[in-house]
């Protein structure tokens, strides 16, 4: 077999098509956030990954725990970005699916402390919860979607207070085992590496997802939904699918969260967590890496710099948002894209 040496046959069209295609053009399917200078970006990504892996040997336990929290929020921000950045629907209740995932993982933890199984169960839990509630949410658009997801998030928060194991006190979870045969992870460095691996795995899945036709259709819906219907797409079903996938990712973030905190409570479903995820996605203005960076920066600003400033984390967060909103490149692209400019 010489296939590994010969160029990939996939982009060459049939014989009749060659004449109609300009020779230089790519099919044009790569997402906008993959710039032509992909080589330099890959180099930077490799350096960032190396630094991320080496982190436990470089800094103290507090910073490690902070970094793990940042990674969890980055996963949640990717979940929000899938909705706001691709489909143009701003969600304000993603923390609810994170909490569903966390409680699912905590329940599974009473049977097995194997991390990957908890992760899968949490993903499924988040997706199921999103499938049920998404039926309501994806009927709405724009600000109404924001309100409905906020309302759903608050309901799930209240439900967790009332009926979840442990009530408003929450439940403690045993340390997670990364793979069968390994010891339980109690040191923050190992937990951090486990969370990093999980986040990278989810990141790779999301990176593939945003390059599929499904993602292109979502971007089409965000830009002009009636046109997509006229092209024969059941936009409601596509948006529900996106909502379910986003719920699954948020659920997975929940499993990673309890690996870090070894504790889950209704406070994890709080509106502030959802708002942080949405804000991170908006800061990323359509890009997944932007959303992850935004989430990590926001966690750092809230927990670390805020601590240095003597509890003024929220002040800093508010000022940061104002600054970002007025910077020309961050016009909260996701929010404005969706409000329809109706003309006859």
């Amino acid at each position: 077999m010489t296939t590994t040496l010969s160029p990939s046959p996939s982009p060459s069209p049939g014989p009749g098509a060659i004449a109609t295609r300009p020779p230089t053009s790519r099919p044009g399917l790569l997402p906008a956030w993959l710039p032509p200078t992909a080589g330099a970006v890959a180099l930077a990504a490799a350096a960032a990954a190396a630094a991320a892996v080496a982190l436990p040997w470089l800094v103290n336990g507090y910073v490690i725990a902070l970094a793990a929290t940042g990674l969890v929020m980055a996963v949640l921000a990717m979940s929000a970005q899938l909705l706001v950045g691709l489909a143009g629907l701003p969600p304000l209740g993603q923390a609810a699916y994170l909490a569903v995932g966390a409680y699912t993982a905590a329940t599974i933890a009473t049977l097995t402390n194997l991390g990957p199984i908890q992760l899968l169960a949490a993903t499924a839990g988040g997706a199921v919860a999103a499938a049920v509630t998404g039926l309501l949410a994806v009927r709405t658009r724009g600000t109404t979607f924001l309100m409905v997801t906020f309302g759903l998030g608050e309901l799930l928060h209240a439900a967790a207070n009332a009926w979840a194991p442990g009530g408003s006190e929450g439940v403690h979870v045993t340390p997670v085992v990364a793979l069968p045969g390994l010891p339980a992870m109690v040191r923050p460095g190992w937990v951090y590496l486990y969370v990093l691996a999980g986040a990278l795995l989810i990141g790779v899945g999301v990176a593939v997802l945003v390059r599929t036709r499904f993602a292109l259709l979502l971007r089409g819906i965000a830009a002009h939904e009636p046109r997509m219907r006229a092209d024969g797409h059941h936009t409601g079903r596509l948006l529900l699918a996106a909502y379910v996938i986003a719920g699954g990712i948020a659920g997975a973030a929940g499993a990673l969260l309890i690996a870090v905190t070894r504790y889950v409570s209704p406070a994890d479903a709080a509106m502030g967590v959802s708002a942080l995820a949405l804000a991170a996605a908006l800061i990323g203005s359509g890009s997944m890496t932007g959303a992850c960076t935004g989430a990590i920066l926001l966690v750092v600003a809230r927990d670390w710099v805020g601590g240095l400033l003597g509890g003024h984390g929220p002040t800093l967060l508010g000022l940061a948002f104002l600054l970002l909103a007025y910077l020309p490149r961050h016009r909260l692209a996701g929010l404005t894209i969706r409000f329809p400019r109706r003309r006859t």
Partner: peptide
């Protein structure tokens, strides 16, 4: 009525029938 941020050919590709949702690139 167009998806204005998408390129012209992406707009057309949105309408061409018979594509899989999971396809990473459009078939030839």
């Amino acid at each position: 009525a167009l998806a204005r941020p998408l390129t012209a050919v992406q707009n057309v590709l949105l309408a061409v029938p018979g594509q899989r949702l999971t396809a990473l690139r459009a078939a030839a």
